[in-house]
Amino acid sequence: MTEPTTATTAPAALPLGRDVPTDALLDVRDVSLSFGQVRALRDVSMHARRGEVTAIVGDNGAGKSTLIRCISGIHRPDAGTIDFDGSRVHFRSPEEARSAGIETVHQNLALVEDLTVWQNLFLNREIVRGIGPLKLLDRGAMRQEAERMVSSLAVNVPAVGARVRRLSGGQRQAVSICRAAGFTSKLIIMDEPTAALGVQETARVEELIQRLRDEGHAIVLISHNFAQVLKLSDAVWVMRAGRCVAGRRTSATDGDEIVALITGARAGDLEDVAR
């Protein structure tokens, strides 16, 4: 299971928090979090490499979304460490994570329907001009920059002046991803980005994810769609009951093994480790 399987000689089984590769952008080690008597995360270790799509899979309640909330500054872990871009981080809010270069596309997209595309792109990031206490929104600059962002990602949006409520599900998802990718982000976390989309819209979002990876972004993808995971990802981490039980290079695994690891039909890499 440790034989080289890819051109980059990456092992099939990924090191769970140990011997992390030098090009890892994100390194999570032994992270735990409890809500009262409920242990949501138990000693979770995983990493994500630069320029790769890293998938996190698991059944409902496995701890996937809780983990990304710890990474993105929504929750603070009770124990463990998170290193990002070579530094130990202790994010106290999503704004701090965003400033460090971590953007998150949540399932609910967090878009304001009555605002336009450009207004959503610059929500809480408004460009202002002025002297002293007198400052005004530079709407022209924001529209121009929004058009550049949309065109650079080839996002299928009618116009940056269109209101979000008039957009299709795929277009809304594209706007949310565009907002995440458009502000010098190093890591983009996507939580079920195509769960509510049709076939054509899903294909467009998948193309966008591949384009972002090719541009050098690191992407953490949460998805229940195993075909999508196998198609898009370079590495897969499997979570079960609040633990990360296994990690695989995608080229060295298949859907049957992933399902077996998720359900417990096959023991994970940490099954024999007392925690």
Score class of each variant (00 low, 15 high):
220 V>F: 00
201 E>H: 02
161 G>L: 12
172 R>W: 08
167 L>Q: 08
161 G>Y: 01
206 E>L: 10
190 M>R: 12
208 L>E: 05
173 Q>N: 04
165 R>M: 11
201 E>Y: 04
193 P>S: 06
205 V>F: 14
227 A>C: 00
166 R>V: 13
209 I>M: 15
218 A>I: 14
214 D>L: 09
161 G>N: 14
168 S>D: 04
184 T>D: 15
205 V>E: 09
212 L>Q: 03
226 F>D: 03
195 A>M: 12
200 Q>F: 05
164 V>G: 04
183 F>R: 07
180 A>Y: 11
222 I>A: 01
195 A>C: 10
228 Q>Y: 01
222 I>N: 06
196 A>L: 14
214 D>I: 04
204 R>E: 15
173 Q>S: 05
227 A>P: 00
159 A>R: 10
218 A>S: 15
201 E>Q: 10
207 E>H: 12
195 A>G: 11
214 D>R: 14
219 I>Q: 08
194 T>R: 08
185 S>P: 12
196 A>G: 09
214 D>C: 04
160 V>R: 07
180 A>P: 08
214 D>M: 13
195 A>W: 06
168 S>H: 08
180 A>H: 08
210 Q>H: 09
221 L>W: 03
213 R>K: 14
174 A>V: 00
195 A>S: 15
212 L>W: 07
196 A>M: 15
213 R>T: 08
178 C>A: 14
166 R>I: 12
215 E>A: 14
193 P>V: 10
165 R>W: 13
227 A>R: 10
191 D>C: 15
203 A>R: 15
200 Q>E: 14
223 S>P: 04
168 S>L: 05
223 S>F: 01
171 Q>K: 07
171 Q>I: 06
195 A>H: 10
162 A>C: 10
161 G>K: 09
